Computed example of a mutant assay.
Amino acid sequence: MCILGPSNSGKSTLANAIARKRGLEAVHLDVLHHLPNTDWEPRSKDEFIALHDAAIAGQRWVMDGNYSVCMPQRFRRATGLILLDVSTPISLLRYFRRSLFETGRHGALEGGRDSVKWDMIHHIAVFTPRNRKLYSAM
């Protein structure tokens, strides 16, 4: 099962809930895409795709995250898709709350600590509205 949606829409929380209820493995793409114990430093594209493809090779999983570079193969293996949507202002509010106050959240990077980053604010404010249309079309 794939869960897509904008940043801070609850994808990881929902993936964990479904995984617990259905006995599935929860796979968080942010964790696969970034190196542990860093400040969200990305892996190489090839390494990320290899980790992604290994995860979808399993029989029973629920995966949260977008990462369109891997969507075709993920969609071929998935038996279900959930598209979450929250408004851009709500997404920004949740981002600030998560970065400033929450610890131990679902899908967090091992050894990392969320912090407010201009690049993430820009991503949520500019790219999320564009991606909303793209994901709906998919």
Rank of each mutant, 00 (worst) to 15 (best):
T38N: 13
E41T: 14
S9D: 05
Q59Y: 09
D64E: 01
R43Q: 12
A55F: 05
I90A: 07
N37A: 02
G5P: 08
L100G: 11
I3F: 00
T79A: 13
F101G: 04
L83N: 12
K21F: 10
D53P: 07
R43W: 01
P6V: 13
L92C: 12
L93V: 01
T38P: 13
S9Y: 10
L81S: 08
C2I: 14
A54Q: 10
I49N: 04
G10Y: 10
K21G: 04
A15E: 00
N16H: 15
L32D: 06
E25G: 04
G104T: 08
G107S: 13
V86T: 10
Y67W: 11
E102L: 08
E41M: 14
N66K: 03
L81P: 00
E25V: 07
L83I: 14
A54C: 08
E102N: 09
I18N: 15
I56W: 11
H52N: 15
L100R: 11
V31G: 02
P36A: 13
P6H: 05
A108W: 07
S12G: 13
I90R: 15
L51Q: 09
R20N: 14
S7N: 05
R98C: 13
L83T: 11
R77N: 14
F101I: 07
R77F: 11
A26H: 11
H34S: 05
M71R: 13
L109K: 06
V62C: 05
L32V: 12
Q59M: 08
R97S: 06
A57C: 08
D53M: 09
